[in-house]
């Protein structure tokens, strides 16, 4: 029961995290200050960091459930 609850909670967290990351990524990918200055680099930094920490927590979730 508790494992199921944690799984549900984590699935919800994944969904929120996924939507939030996608919004931020595409928002900054489109953002430009000047024609030759964009925020693409920032969106890539954000995506890399988010994927890293997300995978880290996913590993522990898998280890928790097996």
């Amino acid at each position: 029961m508790t494992v199921k609850l944690i799984l549900w909670f984590y699935s919800l967290l994944i969904l929120i995290c996924f939507i939030w990351s996608a919004i931020i990524f595409f928002h900054f990918k489109r953002l430009r200050i000047l024609p030759d200055i964009s925020a693409v680099k920032i969106s890539k930094i954000f995506l890399t960091g988010t994927i890293f920490f997300f995978l880290l927590s996913l590993i522990f979730l898998i280890l928790l459930t097996i």
Binding site: I6, C17, S57, L63
Partner: peptide, 23 residues
């Protein structure tokens, strides 16, 4: 709660979620 799950991995999961918030 920790009768059915490992406290070690539960704490590690919490820490990694905290890391995500800090990020």
């Amino acid at each position: 709660l920790f009768l059915s799950i490992s406290p070690k991995y539960f704490i590690l999961l919490l820490f990694s979620c905290l890391l995500m918030i800090c990020w």
